[in-house]
Structure formats: structure tokens, C-alpha cells
Write a protein that binds this DNA or RNA. Structure first.
Length: 270
DNA sequence: CGAACGACCTGCAGGC
DNA sequence: TGCCTGCAGGTCGTTC
């Protein structure tokens, strides 16, 4: 579910609220996430103050005095701040009780999410091989172009690969390719440098715009205060098969690439 | 090595 | 009403 804009929206909401607060208790109600939730969290965290809330790719990194909590929202996860007396809901798997009558709750129906503990999260095996952030100075058209040489992989799969660039999931890959007029199934190695220039900016612009709108809520994304994001209203092709292309009025088509639904205008995107 | 695919899990919509 | 199928924002591990 959450791609970079949804994770960043969550991060901003959590940071403004959590920094400086103390964790008083941790209740692990369901440890069976993508990997088992470390049971020692319940012992380590109580008494510690939250120092920072950062993000790397789609991972949220919550710093306390002795280390970092690594969180990933998977497809259906959310982290919400609620008054501690709010009744627990189904799929509220982990609760962090805070010292101010509020709790941080990790909710994740599909349990593809992750909650791990690490002293140095950027060196963790899940994070250490990740590609550049979309706004990193190394993420350029020249980089994308050079890395793509000789590749027959669909350009959409290529930009969704975390080793190429992080944060671009299925929604924003479709949207950025539409903005760039590039066919999603075109081989990555057969996209010109000039078109990678357009795509690089499109990825940055689409993600930035989505962050500004608080992310995209298709079904169940909510931010740290339980509110939806509004970028769904700005989607131009995603989940719009059969509708008219906003540029040429022809029909948006849907195909499958790498087991993911892909939406595009066959006339505008080549 | 790159690339394709199954797997993990719940909920929901649609067809019969 | 209920059962079945397919699909959903991610990404790791296996296989070719």
C-alpha cells in the first residue's frame, strides 16, 4: 500500500507528535508480521524517549536513546496516534503506550509489515542495498540511462526496483510514466537519455505532489491521525482503465507487467 | 549475473 | 445467502 508519499506523510505526522515523548510500555499483541516482531522490544523501549523519526525508502526509522525501531507498512499497514483509552481494533498488532495518555498503534490487516530493532539501521541487511532516494544528487537521468543499458526489463519494473531508485511503487510508477509519455512495457535499455531526463523529473514531481496532498488513499491508507490522503483525485491513469485519456481522449488500457496492474494510454505513451 | 515468479496474508467485490 | 475467484499500495527468496 504505502509508497514513499504515504510513508513520508506518516513520518511527518509522527515526528511532530512523537519527538520528546517517552515510551512507557509496549504490548505485542500479534508478533507474526513479515518477520517476527522482536520480543525484546517490550523490555528495551519502556523508559526511553523518542529522539527522531526519519525515513529511508519506505522504511520509517524511529530513534530512541539506545537504538532504532525500523518500521515498514507493507501493503496495508498504518501507524496511528490515538488516546490510550481508545478501544483496540482488530489488526492493531503492536501498541506503544506513551507517557502522555496517547498510544502509537501499528495496524496491519495483511501483516506484510515489519517492526525490527537495530543499533545501526542503515547497515541492516534490508536497508543496506537500497538505491538512491528520488531527490538524492546521484539520482539523475544519466544514472538511470547508464544503469539501463543492455536491459530488456520493462521500464516500469525497472523504476519500481528498489536498487534503481527507492519509493516508486505501482501507483506512482504508472503516473510518472504517463506524465513522461513512456510506454510501461518499453525495454529499460531502449529509453533515450532525453526521455530519462523527463522521467526523472516526472518521478520527483509526482512524488512531491502526492506528499503535498497527504498521499493517496485508494482503500485503507490513513495518516498518523487517521485521516486519508487526497492524491487519488489527481491520479491520471492508475485504476482508470476504460476511461478517457486526459490528453487525447482515447481509452486508458490495463495490462499486467511483473504481476502488477499497469495503466497507460497506448496513443500518448510509446 | 538479470529476470520472472511464487509466496506471504486479509478483505472485498463480483459472478454464479 | 453463500461459495468461489481474482485482485489489492510491497518485496523477499527461489528458480531459470
Amino acid at each position: 500500500m504505502p509508497e514513499l508519499p504515504e510513508v513520508e506523510t506518516t513520518r511527518r505526522g509522527l515526528a511532530s507528535y512523537l519527538i520528546g515523548t517517552i515510551i512507557t510500555a509496549v504490548n505485542i499483541r500479534e508478533p507474526r508480521l513479515r518477520w517476527p516482531v522482536a520480543p525484546e522490544l517490550a523490555n528495551i523501549l519502556p523508559g526511553q524517549t523518542i529522539l527522531a523519526v526519519e525515513r529511508r525508502a519506505k522504511y520509517l526509522l524511529i530513534q530512541v536513546q539506545t537504538g532504532w525501531l525500523i518500521a515498514h507498512l507493507g501493503m496495508s499497514g498504518s501507524l496511528r496516534i490515538v488516546p490510550s483509552d481508545t478501544p483496540l481494533r482488530k489488526h492493531d498488532h503492536v501498541e506503544f503506550v506513551l507517557g502522555n495518555q496517547y498510544s502509537l498503534r501499528f495496524h496491519d490487516p495483511r501483516r506484510f509489515g515489519v517492526l525490527l530493532w537495530s543499533a545501526r539501521p542503515l547497515e541492516h541487511p534490508l536497508l543496506c542495498e537500497l538505491g538512491p532516494e528520488p531527490w538524492d544528487s546521484v539520482f539523475t537521468a544519466e544514472y538511470l540511462y547508464a544503469r539501463a543499458q543492455g536491459r530488456h526489463q520493462a521500464v516500469k519494473s525497472y523504476i519500481m526496483d528498489n536498487r534503481t531508485v527507492v519509493g516508486v511503487g505501482n501507483i506512482y510508477a504508472n503516473e510518472a510514466l504517463f506524465v513522461s509519455s513512456i510506454h510501461p512495457a518499453r525495454a529499460a535499455g531502449r529509453v533515450s537519455l532525453a526521455r530519462y531526463r523527463v522521467l526523472t523529473k516526472a518521478i520527483q514531481d509526482v512524488l512531491a505532489s502526492a506528499i503535498q496532498q497527504g498521499g493517496t488513499t485508494l482503500r485503507d491508507f490513513v495518516n498518523s491521525h487517521g485521516e486519508p490522503g487526497y492524491f487519488k483525485l489527481s491520479l491520471q491513469v492508475y485504476e482508470r482503465a476504460g476511461e478517457h485519456c486526459i490528453r487525447c481522449q482515447r481509452q486508458i488500457k490495463q495490462i499486467r507487467l511483473g504481476q502488477r496492474s499497469s495503466y497507460f494510454c497506448p496513443y500518448c505513451q510509446r
